[in-house]
Computed example of a mutant assay.
Amino acid sequence: MCKPQLHYHRTMSTTRTTPRQPAAARRRARELEILTATRELFDETGVRDAQIEDIARAVGVNRAIIYRHFSGKEELFALTLVSYLEDLETELAGAAAARTTPPEQLVAVVEAFVDFGVAHPAFVDCAQTLMRRPGPELLEEISESALFRLGRGIAACLARLRDVLVAGNEAGDFRVEDPRLLANHMYASGLGALQLARVGMLVGESSPGVPEIAPVSADEVRRNVVATARALAAGA
């Protein structure tokens, strides 16, 4: 009778030494898996065509699991945008570090922003979708923690541009009254320019009252965004 009992305790002891992944770690791993699948789906099919069912299928779960980790589609979009913003911030930092003077850094940072948007159209879609929503409305659909992560991601990217503008002011190259405001303006207007690059068309008039469509390339849009940024930084 004694030996089986000892064997039983020895078996239980062996079982208990096998570490289990903490619940919080498992939850973070599943959230990352969902966000990775969402971004891959966005890059493949675009934001507008992406459905919760498609994301769940890619992860191998049902849609109820998605809603267990995220408050809804808006929050899922917001946190996917955070992923793009983290990559964008890395690109902007590298672009600025590769140049020495503020004017050169400004050009490099703006070009990196445009190139990133052209390479990742879903980033533009995500950013514009969320920017169209008033702040109080977003708070109703996105948790405070998700909104904090989104704000931190945007702020990190804007800081790269703001720091260049501040350095240019100090060096006498720029005349920017409010670097933070101008950085935000450049980000918002840059997203609009990226949409123009995607459409690839300009609207004008061939004669008064007669509309005309003309093509525009991503390179042309890129040059225009850079020229506008330089003029704004110079106080023009």
Rank of each mutant, 00 (worst) to 15 (best):
S217P: 06
R162C: 07
H120Q: 10
F148P: 10
L191R: 13
V82N: 09
M201G: 14
V118G: 06
M12Y: 10
V82C: 13
L181E: 14
S71I: 00
A229F: 01
V225I: 10
N224V: 14
R68D: 03
R132T: 04
A58L: 08
P136I: 05
F113W: 13
L41Q: 00
V199I: 10
H120K: 10
R27T: 15
T36Q: 09
D49Q: 01
E86L: 09
G94E: 05
A50H: 00
I65C: 01
L232V: 10
A227E: 13
E74C: 02
V226W: 04
G204T: 07
H69Q: 05
N184L: 14
Q5C: 08
D43E: 06
R222L: 09
P121V: 12
K3W: 11
A78C: 06
F70G: 01
C2I: 11
V210Q: 15
L79N: 04
V109N: 02
Y67A: 00
V199A: 12
G151D: 02
A156V: 09
G192D: 10
P102M: 02
Q5S: 09
T100R: 14
F123D: 12
G135E: 12
R133F: 11
T11G: 06
L138E: 09
E205N: 04
D43N: 06
E205R: 04
R180K: 14
P211G: 11
V118A: 05
A214E: 07
A58W: 03
A167W: 02
S13I: 13
Y67M: 00
G94L: 03
A98T: 00
P4K: 05
A93E: 10
E140D: 15
P4M: 01
R48I: 03
V118M: 07
A236Y: 10
C126A: 05
L202Y: 04
G200E: 08
T36M: 08
E53Y: 03
G209F: 07
H185I: 12
E104N: 00
P19A: 01
D54K: 05
L191I: 09
T17C: 12
C157H: 02
L182W: 00
I66C: 00
A24K: 08
Q105N: 01
T38C: 09
A64H: 07
R26Y: 03
P208M: 12
L191C: 09
E144R: 15
P134W: 00
L165Q: 07
S83H: 10
T36G: 11
A227I: 06
Q105G: 03
D87N: 08
L232I: 06
S145K: 11
V118E: 11
G135R: 14
R133H: 10
L41W: 00
A122N: 14
P134Q: 02
A50N: 02
Q5G: 11
T38M: 10
A234D: 09
A24R: 11
S217R: 05
G117Y: 02
Y187T: 08
Y187F: 11
A171K: 03
V107W: 05
V82M: 05
K3P: 11
E144N: 08
A98L: 01
N224H: 15
V114D: 15
T228W: 08
T38P: 01
R99V: 08
E144Q: 11
K73M: 04
L35G: 07
A227K: 15
L191G: 13
P136V: 04
G168D: 05
P4R: 07
S71D: 06
R57M: 04
A50I: 01
E220Y: 01
L194E: 13
P211E: 11
Y187H: 12
